[in-house]
Amino acid sequence: MVGGIIDPTAGAQTRVSVEQRDSPVVSSLDGLRVGLLENTKRNAARILDAVGAALAETHGAAELVRRTKKQFAMPLPSDVLTDLKSTCDVVVIGVGDCGSCSASAVADGIALEETGLPTAVICTDAFESTARAMAELKGDADYGFLLTEHPVANLTDEQIVQRAGRLAPEVAARLLGRRSSGVVA
């Protein structure tokens, strides 16, 4: 306190301190169950579906487990988290394309990785700063989320397939622990 002046941010400065750790990864997607956690935003489910299909085709993923996060701004409900943990080997999350849902997608990715599930979170590039702010808030400042060009809500069917085709190798690299650019044009 300087000159008796109260610091009004004192309460907000407490960040979660997590042990520095590497993200959980898998050595191969062959035969694995891939969770697709869509957040109800327009085109999110279709993009994740197309990414999932590509992972099945090129990486041998055995099963696509589709789930919906109904309140896109809020933390993942514990029952959904438990369900994903028991039904999936890896989870793809997205698409964070708004102020609250992009940050929240990153929080969900970090929460799932804390349970040992490898994740790939997809946000649009317009929301990089808020996605990073959430990673810092959660004590995992370097959490690797994937960025795709904004916007996605008005992509056509054909454009969704093209976008998913570019996203899928990046998603796979993230889940396999290989170096990913993090950016998908």
Binding site: T9, S102, T130
Partner: peptide, 18 residues
Amino acid sequence: GLTVRNSLGVVPHALEQA
């Protein structure tokens, strides 16, 4: 607004995305 900014930590260009 100041409470949202300082106590809840929703600051423009970071967690505030107006």
